[in-house]
Computed example of a mutant assay.
Amino acid sequence: MKERNNIWRKRLDKWIGCPLLFMLGFFHQRRQAETFERDRALRIVLVKTAAIGDTILLSAVVDEIKQQYTNSHVTVICSNDNLPMVRLLCGVDDIFVFRMNQPVQSFLKLRALQKFDLLLDFGPWPRINAIISWMVRADYTVGFKRSHMYRHYTYDKWVEHLDTLHEMDNYRNILQGAGIQPAGRLPHFEASGGASIEHRPYVVFHQYPGGSMEKQRKWPEARWVELGQWLHQKYRIRIMLSGAPSDRAAAEHMESLLRERGVSAESIAGVYSLGEMIDVLAKAKLVISVNTGIMHLAAAVRVPLIALHGATSELRWGPLSDRAVVVKSGEACQPCISLGFESKCTDPVCMRNITVDMVADEIERFWR
């Protein structure tokens, strides 16, 4: 059974998680926050069990902690879903993988962990995150209170998770709830030179949103083909088609469509690891992506980026980079996704109404 977007896990998370957390919270005695000296060797655990994009944002949180508490020891509790990204976070000292398909064994191993000074849970809705946070031995815990999620009862302090803030600012509020004043750091990754890439200039197309609500965040295939033709005719630049291993067939199909039209295109879906993709993105002349983890990674390496937004708000999930622009169609129904799964839309006109001309205009602004 897959770990992410599994309908039965989501149902169990709600049916079991809500009453269990309410009961645990009824007996929970909330503790007072402690003021930590900067030179103290703090043991801090961060809970984040899903999503590559969210985990990229978490890199700035780790950076904030390590800059302010240089002797701190940071552990991240993740799942197999976001483990590859957690491994790339600078400043993480230990990783605990919570195996969603082995919850009992994972909970028992959590209790065996050494006690922590501080636990910060960055999951806005999964109740299992809150249960994990309760199981871990920590002197003080901070997590989100989200409307209608009923998951905040066991934290010593909760902060409101708000749609009106960028998720990075929601994360900063968690830090403030723990008495850590954020300095406004942003996700940042440096290319390592590990990926072998031909030096000819290229543009990266990332078409595949991944996760839930994929249909609502996709730009039509025909638009990508049209954009590829325009780029070839105007700039004679090659196009790299990135994606996960599960996107390989779709990316190879797109490669064939573009090559039939004389466009220099190459599918790299599933070819490079996440760490190698940092190099691929950093060396690109431009990245064009829908709202997904690769978009956030491109922003974090500060490559010129065009982010296509439809069902998701750029104010909530936009790229955090001064070298990025957002293109959207501006439909009255936008946005309809906040947590990642709540949209009822079956006809995403917001993405369909992003025209090639709109994207081409932004490309020309970058390359003037």
Score class of each variant (00 low, 15 high):
Pro84Trp: 05
Gln114Phe: 00
Gly262Trp: 07
Gly177Ser: 12
His296Ile: 02
Lys285Glu: 15
Ser192Asp: 12
Thr75Lys: 05
Gly270Phe: 04
Ser79His: 05
Arg11Ser: 15
Leu21Thr: 11
Gly193Val: 03
Pro304Tyr: 03
Leu58Glu: 09
Val327Ala: 10
Gln181His: 10
Leu89Ser: 04
Ser246Ile: 12
Ile278Gly: 03
Arg4Ser: 13
His206Tyr: 05
Leu20Arg: 00
Ala300Asp: 11
Asp54Ile: 02
Ala282Ile: 08
Lys328Cys: 10
Val104Ala: 14
Ala360Asn: 04
Leu12Ala: 11
Trp125Met: 14
Gly330His: 10
Arg368Glu: 15
Arg236Leu: 09
Arg259Ile: 02
Lys283Leu: 15
Met240Lys: 02
Asp139Lys: 04
Ala300Ile: 07
Ala332Tyr: 10
Glu331Pro: 00
Arg200Tyr: 00
Pro187Ile: 06
Asn101Cys: 04
Arg238Asn: 11
Trp15Ala: 14
Gln229Leu: 13
Leu320Glu: 14
Ile237Met: 14
Leu274Asp: 01
His188Cys: 13
Ile131Glu: 10
Ile52Thr: 11
Leu119Gln: 08
Tyr171Asp: 15
Pro84Tyr: 06
Trp224Thr: 03
Glu198Ser: 08
Val76Asn: 03
Pro182Cys: 09
Gly340Thr: 08
Leu231Tyr: 09
Tyr140Glu: 14
Val303Met: 01
Cys78Lys: 03
Val290Asp: 10
Met358Lys: 09
Ile306Gln: 05
Leu308Trp: 01
Val45Asp: 10
Pro220Lys: 00
Val303Thr: 15
Gly275Asp: 12
Pro19Ile: 09
Ala51Tyr: 09
Asn101Met: 08
Glu314Ser: 15
Val349Trp: 01
Gly17Ile: 06
Val359Tyr: 11
Cys345Pro: 03
Arg259Lys: 14
